[in-house]
Amino acid sequence: MRTLITGIAASAFLCLALPAFAADPPVKLAVKPLLCVVDKGASSCLMSFDIRWKATQTGEYCLNDSAKPEPVRCWAPAINGAVLQEREVREEFIYWLGAPGGADHLSEVKVSVLRVDSADRRRERRTRHVWDVL
């Protein structure tokens, strides 16, 4: 009986503790904004990204852009960093943080592109709902 109670208590502890560990990654990357909205007559957005990261341990980290071969910026041993980047966005890409020359994504953030127009005119026709909002 004691073993069963100990087992249940241990399971409960693990269930409660694991999300706490999972919620605290070794490196956290935050990027603003995350969405480029493209409408008729435009093929890209010129965006100014505010990029910040914070690690639990001091180390060498590089910020990468999945659409470019070279890192955006690398930091000498540091525990956090920030950079502003102006960039033209035409398609979805990922900002990711990793070790210099490494391929492992310690943390990543996706920047999305939403096209609100369509090459197919039928998709732009006004539907005849009782109330058309979409």
């Binding site: 995350l34 969405l35 909205v37 999305s112 592109v113 939403l114 609100v116 109330w131 058309d132 909002v133 979409l134």
Partner: peptide, 11 residues
């Protein structure tokens, strides 16, 4: 447009 899928709408 809040995200690629979600938006606040007023009509």
């Amino acid at each position: 447009y809040v995200t690629k899928h979600l938006r606040a709408a007023l009509s």
